[in-house]
Design a protein around this nucleic acid. Structure first.
Lengths: 332, 332
DNA sequence: CCTATTTATGCTCAATTTGAGCATTACTGG
DNA sequence: CCAGTAATGCTCAAATTGAGCATAAATAGG
């Protein structure tokens, strides 16, 4: 054991002494940047895709990029022709399966970013399109009733029953209950990734079939639109991160137009969270946090009493973006 | 603009069609894994270092690693000779400055991980050592009074005053106030990275001097121990993440021995948070969350009334680790 | 044995925060 | 004028949080 420890430390120290590594370039990989670019348009959360909605936009990391974030920013801006408001690193994946895809050039690393914008008309390059993210995750939208898509409850039961041992069956059952808010538990909108991964393991999404994972329901349900590689998993990661983020940091603002009504703002938050919020409490929260101020103008035809228009307060926003807000923005 | 957009999309699509990229291997980098390995021993939060405490352990990503996390796990375990409880990806950095350090092999990517363990006696390889993390961030420990290290308040004022324009001076002042809880604001223990970055920009840490950043205080204070490259920034990222995490996920448990008193547990949380907690409220929280159960035994000489020993409840723990806890664990 | 000291543990209380709902106001379209 | 639809103002009870008082059970020293 002791002897085995040496190589790791040794090469770490070589780094530190600025000596180049000779031994066949260990750690050499190719790197690509993948973006989960989100906008909310007309109350629908949308994500930028390419290849008929089957891929997230991605591009190789290039030497001229000053930094990873700058790289992401630069080529996403090239594609969408407008600046990104908010960019945040999501996760880094290394996929051994991609060796083949890269012509034997060693392993590939994908560094994914979450970015927020407003959708601009007619700026997309051919092939790119905005898609409702609930096309990929229909079970995540609880704005119209909390019912899961039809085949899900039975399919989850079948999966739990297919466990090899009683202990595994119990564990599966509990896991499904937590993830999907079954058995009297409440739905937790932040468990997007956990739900996707469970469905993958249970063979209920096409990617699982593609990767040779069995399903215990016939005919096998294939929930939501599939994506190539693990892009849907990355999208799930992005959605989960965004849902968590809006509860403690005022990032919704990046998704809103310069002025908006409080209901507009609420609808956007609801679109992201996939859940409806209590209107009066939402207002109370927003107002008490003093994140917005009246523009003095009123919104046109809302269908009822006209609403005041608001804008964000730049000063407060900066502070909150930096330090976060104490009281959460939404809450089921 | 349109024309420029093509390359990004084109190479993204090439990925998707499984075509190898020819053009001089764009995106080829070397990758290393860096670990922020944390333990809490005798009420002190400690981090594993190498090279006399000036570096975090790091090693190249190697082809035999199944995944990034497995890679981190494997060589950290080799060095410390015991299994890691919890491993979580922290952040991925690409540093152009490292080109030289790698002998012109192109850019280097560092993928950092946060890992939690208990310190085991005598298992370290030569050169590695556990260090109190407050050696690197003395301003982060508020357990004995909330006073900042002596030169800080004046140095922060000097930095704010050195802003080029009135607007910049105001912005700097506000930023310092938010980060360090000045001007009647409360200290936010999660802003570890923001504070380190501010001190770096203000020239108040050695790394800034190394990188040629000016300081507006003489003699220039050099707060805390320095580390090589950007390892101190990575450590700050890890501490910030851990401080945030313990408020909504029961990760402290990875740092505790099999049985412990409630005060032991509280001291560990306090060590991480850098702040003291109200004892009775801490108990109330832990008990109400039902995360622990009595072992039936009592702790020996505590100096006063003997305390009950507790252990974690495996069942609840699993669930919480998966879904998170609603009520936060500590709270200033 | 008695006392001061130290820590564990049980319990109370007021201030906030949260979740939910009622009531009123101000528009639009018949 | 009336019905329908939102916006907006307010109230209320439950739950959570922050702080402190009181008591119990040990140890060390006289």
């Amino acid at each position: 054991m002791r002897a085995m420890a040496a190589p790791g430390l040794a090469s770490a120290r070589r780094h530190l002494r600025n000596e180049p590594m000779i031994e066949n370039r260990p750690g050499s990989v190719s790197a690509e940047l993948i973006a989960v670019l989100v906008a909310v348009t007309a109350g629908t959360p949308r994500v930028l895709t390419i290849a008929e909605g089957t891929s997230l936009p991605s591009g190789p990391l290039s030497p001229e990029h000053r930094s990873l974030q700058a790289g992401t920013r630069s080529w996403v801006e090239r594609q969408t022709h407008h600046p990104l408001g908010y960019v945040e690193q999501l996760y880094t994946f290394a996929d051994n399966d991609r060796n083949a895809a890269l012509g034997g050039f060693g392993r590939a690393i994908s560094i994914s970013y979450l970015a927020l914008t407003r959708e601009q008309p007619k700026t997309l390059d051919g092939g790119a399109s905005w898609r409702n993210w609930y096309d990929y995750f229909p079970w995540e939208d609880h704005r119209q009733g909390a019912d899961l898509p039809a085949p899900l409850p039975a399919a989850l039961r079948a999966w739990a029953q297919a466990g090899a041992s009683p202990a595994e069956r119990r564990a599966r059952k509990q896991r499904a209950a937590i993830a999907f808010g079954l058995e009297g538990r409440r739905w937790n909108e932040e468990l997007v990734l956990q739900r996707y991964e469970l469905l993958y393991e249970a063979g209920l999404v096409s990617e699982a079939a593609r990767d040779g994972i069995a399903c215990h329901t016939t005919p096998a349900p294939r929930l939501g639109h599939a994506m190539r590689q693990d892009h849907r998993r990355i999208l799930a990661t992005g959605i989960a991160r965004l849902r968590a983020k809006i509860t403690y940091r005022p990032v919704v603002f990046e998704l809103m137009p310069p002025s908006f009504t409080l209901l507009d703002l609420q609808r956007s938050v609801e679109a992201l969270a996939g859940q409806l919020l209590h209107k009066q409490n939402f207002r109370r929260l927003v107002e008490q946090q003093a994140l917005v101020e009246e523009t003095g103008q009123m919104a046109g035809a809302t269908g009822g009493r006209p609403a005041k228009l608001f804008r964000f307060r730049a000063d407060i926003l900066q502070e909150r973006a930096y330090a976060g807000t104490k009281p959460p923005l939404p809450r089921a």
